[in-house]
């Protein structure tokens, strides 16, 4: 709409571009439409770079950065809907009305003395506090061009611009110069101009406090780390389990897998114990022990004879069975 009226509109997304666009010699108006991604350093840079421009407009009141711009303006909530313009600025007509007010811009006493003028007073919750306005204009100073802060971000959107007198106000405000720079900061701009106020999320004493904590930790470590006298050496005893040789022997037997010999050892041991138990000499041969043991245990003599004198087991499982049967035979003889 502004282009139709012969106004040159540039849309930029960084403060540097905005400064460059505004400084091309033509009288320009710089508009910040959305200040969500506007950092304080980007805003200061914008103000510094556009000293030669006609006007800088913050359409949405720029609540995040307004305080840090040192314009003597602050942001509050509007207490009531403004009735009339009640001011004489070139872009405001006497009977204008506004809607969709989001913020009330409150100039300080000092700013008022320096010539800041407000339009559309919104009153104040507390009579002691100064009244806010829907729009405040700060005249050009040595550091910046004239700045207009408007607390109606919704008024210039396509949805509401046709309501009340919004359209007229906005067009008059932005159409005051032949060149309009529409500055819409993006995240790259925010990264290029890092905020200097973000650090203040932490209280100031946190840094030194961490140093104190670290020092205290070091002192604590020193206090606890100091031994009360040296370590006393202990003459350690020799630790050898007596059964170790037998266990190693078992591993050797297992590794060699000599079932023939294993069966012979087991049978010999059982035969010897049975012979002693049955009143025979300990070295009695198996063929003499077998019938006596069979009679004592009440088992068939042939089975006992095969158990004590049979062939070597064919596999590992056979050896296990043989060992268990021998133990069973001894048990039988013992309990008979």
């Amino acid at each position: 709409m502004l282009r139709d009226q012969g106004i040159d509109v540039d849309v930029v997304s960084t403060s540097q571009d905005a400064v460059d666009a505004a400084g091309d010699g033509r009288p320009a108006t710089v508009v910040v439409g959305n200040s969500d991604l506007l950092t304080d350093s980007a805003a200061r840079r914008l103000l510094e770079g556009t000293r030669g421009a006609d006007r800088v407009v913050f359409l949405d009141g720029a609540p995040g950065v307004l305080l840090s711009l040192d314009l003597g303006l602050s942001v509050g909530l509007p207490a009531e809907r403004p009735a009339a313009a009640d001011c004489s600025l070139p872009w405001v007509a006497g009977g204008d009305r506004v809607t969709h007010l989001s913020w009330a811009i409150v100039p300080s006493d000092e700013a008022r003395r320096d010539g800041a003028r407000g339009c559309f007073p919104t009153g104040s919750d507390d009579p002691a506090l100064p009244s806010g306005f829907a729009a405040v204009e700060v005249p050009a100073g040595p550091d910046h061009a004239a700045v207009t802060v408007v607390g109606m971000p919704d008024a210039a959107t396509n949805r509401f611009v046709t309501e009340a007198d919004n359209a007229g106000l906005v067009v008059r405000l932005l159409g005051g110069s032949p060149h309009l720079v529409w500055y819409h900061p993006d995240d790259e701009d925010a990264t290029a101009n890092p905020s200097t106020t973000d650090a203040s999320v932490w209280p100031e004493w946190v840094g030194p406090g961490m140093v104190v904590l670290a020092l205290a930790f070091v002192a604590f470590a020193l206090a606890r780390g100091r031994r009360l006298g040296r370590l006393v050496p202990e003459p350690l005893p020799v630790v050898v389990r007596a059964a170790e040789t037998t266990e190693s022997r078992a591993e050797l037997y297992r590794a060699s897998g000599d079932r023939d010999r294993a069966a012979r050892v087991l049978r010999l041991a059982t035969t010897g114990r049975l012979a002693t138990r049955l009143g025979m000499s300990a070295g009695a041969p198996a063929d003499e022990v077998a019938p006596v043991a069979a009679a004592a245990a009440g088992l068939p003599p042939a089975d006992v004879d095969r158990l004590l004198r049979g062939p070597a087991p064919a596999d590992e499982q056979g050896l296990v069975t043989l060992a268990q049967q021998l133990a069973h035979l001894e048990e039988k003889v013992r309990t008979s």
Binding site: T245, T246, E247, R249, A250, E251, L252, Y253, R254, A262, V265, L266, L268, A269, E316, Q317, L319, V320, A323, Q324, A327
Partner: peptide
């Protein structure tokens, strides 16, 4: 004398005895 490993142990123990 429950399993294979035990039986080999038993054989070794018998031999030691």
């Amino acid at each position: 004398r429950d399993g294979s490993q035990e039986v080999w142990g038993a054989v070794a123990a018998e031999r030691t005895a």
